[in-house]
Design a binder for these strands. Structure first.
Lengths: 179, 179
DNA sequence: TATTGTTATACTCTATAACTATA
DNA sequence: TATAGTTATAGAGTATAACAATA
């Protein structure tokens, strides 16, 4: 077995500088030295890694604060889109939020059972149903949206208003390829 | 039942401009009009929503390209950290990547069975084990890292190099509160 | 023939409780 | 008493196949 060797890449965009390694020991220690500070420099060069970590951080604040409304992240998105788009269909929700139709069925059913939304006949397609908020749903959504705006700022306290705008613009460029 | 009313917030950071609504109809249509273009303006003001959508977009490219190495996103992160931090413990991996220890056990076991990493005695704590890549693991990791760097650029074609640097910096400010 | 909504189902991911060996 | 690693298990999230009604 060879001496543990830090991985290096030829084209790394940032210098990869691992911990100082133990010099060759006269009495070789099979286990090596303990790691004191974890080097995360390579992962931090990856947008996917950083975006995922940031999203999970905000969601970790979102979930407990939205629990008062009984809304999980995707349920909040669904309710928001119905509120701003009365008569939207399940198919349109799936396309907009990148959901699989079977996974939306139970969600709609639950929100309907809680009297937050209702299905109506679609005006031109008898296969489809238009989704509409009830007055209770609209009231709930208004409070939930205010909570969402406030918690986002609380969850990202180190971002300035300008940085927020910049960040939103760059993130949209990733998942909206044709805008 | 009242006329469908678009939700408005007093303090919305961006103007919320829903679709033009149907004027009051002399013969009231219970179902309303169909939605033509979905208004997502409110969700697009939320960093959490945009970060999640962007992360999922990149991961959707990551998964099929990393399948050739049999590495899923978290497995790639684990292998990377072990490669750059020989002797790191499971506890340190969990703390760094925000994983639950029980969820790491099977992953380590699988990577060990594939001879990509090995456990060694920890030099000072007999409860813990130091994790090290095998030569096969290091080789695999080098190729996987090169693939990860390339696919990120492919998955975010509309970002300039400067925008990438800016985005990484802002995302890190979210999930690294004390840097 | 294609699409909307649906059911059933399976697979992955994540979280909690409880245990052991050691610090 | 606290911590590192582990087991078992439950829940949430996500994916595919197949179907009825309608386009």
């Amino acid at each position: 077995m060879t001496e543990p060797r830090p991985v290096r890449l030829p084209d790394s965009p940032l210098p990869i500088t691992p911990q100082a390694q133990p010099e060759a020991d006269p009495a070789p220690v099979a286990a090596g030295l303990a790691v004191e500070r974890v080097d995360t420099s390579f992962l931090e060069t990856l947008i996917g890694y950083n975006a995922r970590r940031a999203a999970l951080t905000i969601i970790a604040t979102f979930i407990p604060r939205m629990a008062q409304f009984g809304l999980r992240p995707v349920e909040f998105s669904v309710l928001t889109l119905i509120g701003h788009n009365p008569g939207i269909t399940a198919r349109q929700l799936c396309a907009t939020l990148d959901l699989q139709p079977p996974n939306l069925v139970g969600m709609i059913k639950g929100l309907e059972k809680r009297s937050l939304l209702e299905k109506r006949d679609h005006p031109s397609d008898r296969r489809a149903q238009g989704l509409h908020l009830t007055p209770a749903g609209e009231s709930q959504l208004e409070q939930a949206q205010a909570t969402a705006l406030a918690l986002e700022v609380d969850a990202t306290p180190r971002l300035t208003p300008l940085e927020r705008v910049t960040l939103l613009r760059l993130l949209r460029k990733i998942y909206q390829p044709d805008h």
